[in-house]
Design a protein around this nucleic acid. Sequence first.
DNA 1: TTTAATAGAATAGTAATACTATCATTTTTA
DNA 2: TAAAAATGATAGTATTACTATTCTATTAAA
Lengths: 224, 224
Amino acid sequence: MDFQVSFNVNNKLFVKDPENTDLGRQIVKNAIDLIYTLGFEQFTFKKLAIEIQTTEATIYRYFENKHKLLLYILNWYWSYMEFLVMFKLQNLDNPEIKLIAVIDLLTSDLPNTSGKFDYNKKYLNQIVISESSKAYLVKDISEINKDEVFKPYKDLCSKIADLISEYNPKYKFPKSLTTTLIESSHQQQFFADNLPKLTDVCEVNQKDFVRSFLKDLLFKTILI
Amino acid sequence: MDFQVSFNVNNKLFVKDPENTDLGRQIVKNAIDLIYTLGFEQFTFKKLAIEIQTTEATIYRYFENKHKLLLYILNWYWSYMEFLVMFKLQNLDNPEIKLIAVIDLLTSDLPNTSGKFDYNKKYLNQIVISESSKAYLVKDISEINKDEVFKPYKDLCSKIADLISEYNPKYKFPKSLTTTLIESSHQQQFFADNLPKLTDVCEVNQKDFVRSFLKDLLFKTILI
DNA sequence: TTTAATAGAATAGTAATACTATCATTTTTA
DNA sequence: TAAAAATGATAGTATTACTATTCTATTAAA
């Protein structure tokens, strides 16, 4: 089986659609590698330009600034995630099993697809963990929010929140619980790697630890 | 009643202790105001220097860079928070009431103390909400962690985690739950203000909403 | 009381960042 | 085959994140 997944990333996020050209795809792919390697603060268009042997000016033809490029990458991730959720929940009808599948997705690396988007999924995952909150923790959040750049994230949240309401229609905070689960899944993974004293991780598998913590948290909270 | 609260902020965070001089205290106080106003990314030592009518070079005599200054401010906050927790829990012995008091603290503005530290507590609170994760979401986290700059945060977490274990000794994730509560309290307040669709906030009091969400989450999760 | 150390002000300078602008050249498309 | 679009090459600007030096005022130690 081989198929292509494609989704439109909000066109306010780029000046020129990077999906349409070789260079554009190179920019995004190498941006993921470089942001992973350097961290978002140390990442610059200059360094990216050197990496792919082009010029800063050329990269500015695709993206206004590095913040928009980060948002572009995250939008791609959230859209892909929503697709994966949809895909994995197909033919499931037990709400509990569906929610377990969602938590498994949130705490696993993205599957490696072939084809057009050969982004490094491990790096992408790590970027989401370490950098995604920098996309919204900015002073001009209300300005950038007007361009609907957080729509894929909101859509994913609302899809998961619906599953929670399906499981327990009386639970009062389905969206807040969803964002808490998602953000906590990132944090706990980050803490487990970097500030383990802030977690209860034990030496063994960290992903398993985060997974069991979140499942416990979720199902106790929405118990009928 | 009038008393002075004082705690030592880790001396690796400054070149010269700002608490010892008028200028030093001015730097910290105005840094809080400016970071609140501009956001951490737009905040620079140059702008701060202009604000307090001194020079960049002088500020560099106190702090190596703006990241260390942010850490200094956050360390002050976490130490103060731990003091407040200790203070509020005095003479309480019911673990449930203690935990409720902690959540109330996490979702309230800091009390305005008089005296030496007339930092704007509302601004400080907002900085913790919007900027604190930028203190640890950096590439060189393991380097800076060696200087124990996260000790006050870890101490506070461990104090709260102990309360959870006191309430339910069998609960397996007291630290992870604590960090989730703390970070979620920031996130949900931020989202309620800026991306309300990611929460279940209704028009009325946002602090009350976050508080009831967190209490519900906490006590359901640690139910015996 | 003189000396010496320190704090801060003033100024200058550097490398890097985050862009913008222009123009020539190559590639694509009509 | 001409026109349009994409890219490369180069240059330039304001700002940032520092470092260094020199001078003066203040304070502390000998």
